[in-house]
Simulated assay, not measured.
Amino acid sequence: MASDVISSDRVEGTNVYNVSGDKLGSIDDLMIDKLSGQVRYAVMEFGGFLGMGTDRYPIPWNMLKYDTSQDGYVVPLDKAQLEGAPRYTNEAVPDYDETYRSSVDKYYGL
């Protein structure tokens, strides 16, 4: 029987697709709630070329569904929705304080 847990370094680098099967990016990082231990956000790399000039998009973890046929995560988003989504560069990681988390959750309608 397969395990229902996975190491974070196996999640990082996993592709993310929209429901149409278009690749949107890949998981760069996971943001974990210190108190509950639950993953709050998957940070997806999107844009740029070969990792250069890519932005990071925090997506609420509960929006991602793993699809074994694609060996990746599927989100109900398209590229146009990501264009206006909260994002940051690798050099300017936000604090993920309550205000920032609220803005991310509000953008995605949570």
Rank of each mutant, 00 (worst) to 15 (best):
M1N: 10
A2W: 09
A2F: 12
A2M: 14
S3H: 09
I6P: 04
I6W: 08
S7V: 11
D9M: 11
R10K: 15
R10W: 15
V11E: 09
V11D: 00
V11F: 02
T14R: 07
T14H: 06
N15M: 01
G21K: 10
G25M: 00
I27T: 03
D29S: 07
M31S: 13
K34E: 14
L35M: 06
S36Y: 05
G37L: 07
V39T: 13
R40M: 09
M44L: 06
M44G: 02
E45A: 14
E45Q: 14
F49D: 08
L50Y: 07
G51R: 05
G53P: 03
D55L: 04
R56D: 01
P58F: 02
P58A: 07
I59F: 02
P60N: 12
P60W: 06
W61Q: 15
L64Q: 01
K65M: 11
Y66Q: 06
D67S: 12
G72M: 06
Y73M: 10
V74W: 04
V75F: 02
L77N: 05
L77C: 02
A80N: 13
Q81I: 05
L82W: 04
L82C: 09
E83V: 08
G84C: 11
R87H: 14
R87L: 02
R87S: 14
T89M: 07
N90F: 04
E91W: 06
D95L: 15
S102E: 13
S103T: 15
Y107P: 02
Y108G: 06
G109D: 13
L110D: 09
